[in-house]
Write a protein that binds this DNA or RNA. Structure first.
Lengths: 193, 193
DNA sequence: AAAAATTGTTGACTATCGTCAATACTTTTC
DNA sequence: GAAAAGTATTGACGATAGTCAACAATTTTT
């Protein structure tokens, strides 16, 4: 149910069995079927969703109705719209499931309670955020400085698991390329130019 | 000296005068002349630098010696390489001053001491991180979904202060464009295509 | 099992961005 | 104050990514 979440918690902060039990009380688990929304543009994001099992994507839709994938999230990752989460303004992003998925979260409304008992929870979130921030910075570096070939090669080397589980045109979207261009990039990479 | 830093602190968390005094003891202030490095590729990043006055940029250098600007930081912003900061591995980024600059920081080694007295300091960092994360997510959205015209227009609307203080070719680098292309983009925007 | 939707590839063509080079102008440095 | 460095613009040209369209293969739906 929430084994992976606690594994990750224990990796980053030390927890007594008692503290763990208390956290367990506040946890909410949710199953999301493939193609169902976890968050829709217009909703307010009220939690940081930890992926216990499955895969999700966050994306925006532009004027022309085109989808642009901002982020994937697989087992052990966290996904949400922090902007909406912080401001309680409606989100401009959609999050939906790419596979049948199970997520875990502690509702924002329970954070204060949890932190009262486990002050380290704040540290945990900060550490997760720092790691996510670093990853995103690397992605920006790739986007502004690499060729499509290099960007894709980098992506494959860092996220081989995603390449295997997600349709190619979604990876193209994530990399800021058209599906056709990514198809040609791959051809060039595999046939050796 | 550190007025802006405390103003920002007080905006996000409540502080007694006593707590403020204690934090003041751990603060280090540093002046960096224009063109001087705050961090060089190869160094380990040991602090989150808060910009009290001035302007900095973080950038990477690719195989061809080309610079790519990852991030600007003006008054009230924080800049660092979180990857290196967390792992204590040598950084791959450079940070240098675009103007004579004054920064404030609490060395990583003093964090535990500070948090002992002001537990809220952890919350402060988390809030700053969330905001920075949101901004970066918007930037990625722009990079993968907008045309150069739109990306630049967005940049000008969000960071008018940067446009006025930073050379145009650096903004081009930040947006993933060549200086020539940005020059033409601007021409098209102002002369109406 | 058939129909529909999704996915990935390829070709022809076009629009756009990067490269190289020349120039003008401004700011910094000595 | 002269020389050097840094900055922005423009033109010509070539490379490359996007667009539109057709098609095959696979998966999902009914």
């Amino acid at each position: 149910m929430s084994a992976l979440f606690f594994k990750k918690l224990r990796e980053k902060i030390s927890l007594t069995t008692q503290e763990e039990e208390i956290i367990r009380r506040y946890i909410i688990s949710k199953k999301i079927r493939k193609k169902q929304y976890l968050l829709q543009a217009g909703d307010v994001c009220k939690a940081l969703a930890f992926v216990e099992q499955g895969a999700l994507r966050a994306y925006s839709v532009d004027d022309k109705g085109q989808e642009h994938i901002i982020r994937f999230a697989m087992e052990g990752w966290t996904i949400s719209d922090l902007d909406s989460f912080m401001t309680s303004e409606p989100s401009i992003y959609n999050i939906d499931a790419l596979e049948d998925t199970e997520i875990i979260f502690i509702p924002k409304s329970a954070w204060e309670e949890v932190k009262k008992v486990v002050p380290q929870y704040e540290l945990f979130i900060r550490l997760e955020l720092m790691a996510a921030y670093s990853d995103m910075q690397k992605r920006i570096t790739a986007l502004i400085s690499l060729t499509p070939e290099e960007t894709y090669t980098y992506f494959v080397s860092v996220y081989p698991c995603i390449v295997q589980r997600v349709p190619q045109h979604m990876i193209a979207s994530y990399l800021g390329l058209t599906p056709e261009t990514l198809s040609r990039v791959r051809k060039r990479l595999f046939t050796g130019k």
